[in-house]
Design a protein around this nucleic acid. Sequence first.
DNA 1: TAGATTGTTAATCGATTAACAATC
DNA 2: TAGATTGTTAATCGATTAACAATC
Lengths: 227, 227
Amino acid sequence: MDGIVSIPKRTLERLPVYYRVLTQCLAEGMEYISSGELGEKAGFDNAQVRKDLNHIWSGGRPGLGYEIIKLAECLGDFLGLNNSTDAVLAGAGRLGTALAGYPGFGEYGLNIVAVFDSDPEKIGGYVAGIPILPAAKLPDLIRRLGVRLGIITVPGEAAQEVADAMIAAGIRAIWNFTPVRLQVPKDVLVRNEDLAASLATLSYYLRQHSLTKEGGPACGGAAAESS
Amino acid sequence: MDGIVSIPKRTLERLPVYYRVLTQCLAEGMEYISSGELGEKAGFDNAQVRKDLNHIWSGGRPGLGYEIIKLAECLGDFLGLNNSTDAVLAGAGRLGTALAGYPGFGEYGLNIVAVFDSDPEKIGGYVAGIPILPAAKLPDLIRRLGVRLGIITVPGEAAQEVADAMIAAGIRAIWNFTPVRLQVPKDVLVRNEDLAASLATLSYYLRQHSLTKEGGPACGGAAAESS
DNA sequence: TAGATTGTTAATCGATTAACAATC
DNA sequence: TAGATTGTTAATCGATTAACAATC
């Protein structure tokens, strides 16, 4: 099947970063930007930038760089920043509330149509203008509106159950903010927003540094203490 | 310098996932687990699992698998789940509040010692038992307590400024929840929790599928419409 | 013993970086 | 024209997967 270009996963994740830098540059009145400068601001290699951008646009001009306004528009189109993606969110706790109210989402084309919760106290209320509905209504609403993206911010114990209900109702992709590894059919995409994994990276780095730089005590570090 | 084993970044991010699956298994009364079963529950290949685990422990028994309680303990030690990492959090908005109150952090060895904000209304209050202090006190507290990890959940406009102040005071690693790309010295580690990148992955997948499976309209998709 | 599963080496795969002719 | 920067190919790097002898 033609016309659909497959973009490497890693590239896909960098595109929104480029977009953000470009809008910033536009606001500062810049007209053109080179792969080198864009890379510096975004935190990637200049060759990387050129390669990434060429997946979606080959309009760069040798000796000059990329016309910012055109490139930004092209990126915006590609990322679907106009026609937004509908989603439902399950779990009106602290994190769910924070996400539902996050202004960045609208910018990036996400439209949360409903929030679900099982707490009768919360049901009937609103989060950032979005109605909180009882969990029982989730399947029906997903089907009626043809929603395909589900966001899960319920407590871990309930996560699998919610995911099952969502999938049965037609959800095709899940954004999972719980630490539970969801079991899903292979045609459903799960994106785990894994805070524990991030934290592991950070604290490992800090530990390595306190060991290397100061020889401090810390935990005892790495595989030195295996067995 | 010996004794410090360098673990591949990707492996490092998978370790907390193994840990979580293992505690779950322990709770269910299991004693041993094979790389195959662990992989299935965690969502990774069995060879991957063996390779990852061997970085930190080679105690698996052929024909039997890994003794769960020992492996979990070993992982816990490695991830520093006992001796916790102190951190400060800047930005007591919705997301900051949600993170400060997230119970999973304590589990994973993170200890937020103070929350900073510039809103006089919030200062003097508490989030999940953590005091909210004025931004002006940030440098002093970081220095006094020797905190090396900073979490940033302020509005994008203020992010760079906050990062600068943190770094000047001694912060060595930053967990950045804003979409801004922070400019930092190369010996400071920044981990961007990039929601826009995640969203891009998800909505690209959904778009691809609606095009492939149904040939639906959607946005027009991919590079077909370059130029 | 026979069956299962490890630890590890080799093969494959994908992503990043370097290099450079083409071109504004 | 001379200088800068692109698009793209080739070289490098790191991570994943396959395979299998060793061993419980």
